[in-house]
Amino acid sequence: MSLSKKVILIGHFGVGKSSLVQRFVHQKFSDQYITTIGVKIDKKVVQVDGFDVTMIIWDIAGEDSQKKVPVSYRLGAHGALYVFDLSRPSTYENLQSELDYLNQVIPGIPVQILANKMDLVNDTEREDILDSLSLEEVLETSAKTGLHVEEAFQRLAKKMV
């Protein structure tokens, strides 16, 4: 049995959303920063509890506030990956209010929070940041090394099914 699910990737610009998709879908990584315009759509099929889940991944251009994202891009979304950059405080300073807003515009949408670029901070810094956020189920990822990338999408797929 197969399912098709719309997944939106949201977060500030430059946090590594497109790199995570590149790593997840194409197993590639590039240090070059190419900003995303509008939305870039990709797909990948993952297995969840015997289901083939086709994740239609809408990689939306980064904005410092979700209020700036066009409504049409979020329409019909089944799940969201909220990505922030561990090395840039501005990308997670308002994390809780951003998540609240997302839940307000798409009530009950499953969200997986990803703390990306964990290769750029040391253990102490990472622990301090995550402790300060007081959020459950934050997954630390690195699109560069591929750490936890597959697991991130798998976790969301499981939440969506």
Binding site: G38, V39, K40, I41, P70, S72, Y73
Partner: peptide
Amino acid sequence: KLVFDVVEWNE
């Protein structure tokens, strides 16, 4: 209207 200003297309 349902508008998508910019979509990177590969289909």
